[in-house]
């Protein structure tokens, strides 16, 4: 296991009347793209705020590179909140410089790096314009640049793709992966499961203030995907039912697919049963294919939240 850049140990936080986080622990491997998942109101934002030292935890501690977080650590963290915020009446370039300087860059250095980023994302012409003249997508790019310009080793993106068209979302994805390749660790907070499957290698799922699932995406999918198979065959339903009786559980109504074949998902408990199913299907149902199904992150998310994983 790679060493972890960020470790959260038994963190709890309550606001008057409700518990936002209770005893949450997790560790983010260095160089990972780490998904922080959970339904709305689960406590993700609170956790991110604690990592950013915006609020302090009631209990537990947060370690960055093995050391408790201090005020100057914010210079090593870049955070793009879900609700993007820029001063509307301020010029784009000056505003970016302002945010970069707040993160500890000198004016000259900030300007140099920002201009390069603006060039790269194709918004260099907008340097001297007011933010209110920008389209939403362009403002998002400015925000993204302001988040990464001080080259932090830990980047936190809250719903980074919301509001981007597919082309720009893809560009953003490439940029984020590029940052990871150059050594940054990235934390994603999202409930867009498709993006999790695409780019996250580790996740933590928070529900009702607790960490209910943590680990690498592959492992979790394999674990959750236990013994579900998709079968394509050519027979009527009665034959299928007799063939699978007592040794497999059908998970859905079979449906027709192209070429006269039918398809169904089933749950098969152990190896012996699996072989038996294959034999019977082969004999009675003109089996064409049988393959293990990995559950989508979306399924896992819903099952985990409903407690049926």
């Amino acid at each position: 296991m790679r060493d972890s850049i960020l470790t959260i140990e038994h963190v709890s936080k309550s606001y008057t009347g409700h518990k936002a986080l209770s005893d949450v622990s997790l560790s983010v491997p260095r160089g990972a793209v780490y998904g922080l998942l959970g339904p709305n109101g689960a406590g993700k934002t609170t956790l991110i705020r604690i990592i950013n030292r915006i609020t302090l935890a009631d209990e537990g501690r947060v370690l960055l590179d093995g050391k408790p977080l201090t005020a100057s650590d914010v210079f090593h963290i870049g955070y793009m909140p879900e609700e993007r915020g820029l001063y509307k009446k301020m010029r784009v370039g000056e505003q970016a410089i302002f945010f970069a300087r707040l993160k500890g860059l000198e004016r000259r250095e900030a300007e140099k790096r920002l201009k390069a980023w603006f060039e790269r994302l194709g918004i260099a012409d907008w340097w001297g314009r007011n933010v209110e003249d920008l389209s939403k997508g362009m403002a998002q790019k400015v925000q993204f640049i302001a988040t990464v310009v001080h080259e932090p080793k830990l980047l936190i993106f809250d719903e980074p793709f919301s509001g981007f068209d597919p082309i720009n979302a893809n560009m953003l994805k490439e940029e984020i992966l590029g940052l990871r390749d150059r050594g940054a660790t990235i934390i994603f907070s999202t409930h867009n499961m498709a993006s999790v499957e695409e780019i996250c290698d580790h996740i933590t799922l928070i529900n009702k203030s607790q960490n209910i699932l943590s680990g690498s995406v592959e492992e979790i999918r394999r674990r959750a995907g236990g013994n579900i198979f998709e079968v394509v065959y050519n027979a009527d339903d009665d034959k299928l039912h007799t063939a699978t009786a007592n040794i497999a559980t059908l998970l859905n109504e079979s449906e027709g697919v192209v070429g006269g074949y039918r398809r169904v998902k089933m749950h098969i408990e152990d190896e012996g049963n699996l072989r038996e199913v294959i034999t019977r299907l082969n004999e009675q149902c003109a089996l064409r294919s049988l393959s293990e199904v990995m559950p989508s992150m979306n399924d896992i998310f819903i099952r985990a939240v409903n407690g049926t994983l």
């Binding site: 914010v74 609700e83 993007r84 707040l102 925000q143």
Partner: peptide, 15 residues
Amino acid sequence: EEKASRVIDVLVTSC
């Protein structure tokens, strides 16, 4: 304004 435009969410990460 700063609160409504959510600039504050960005500011609090540095100050």
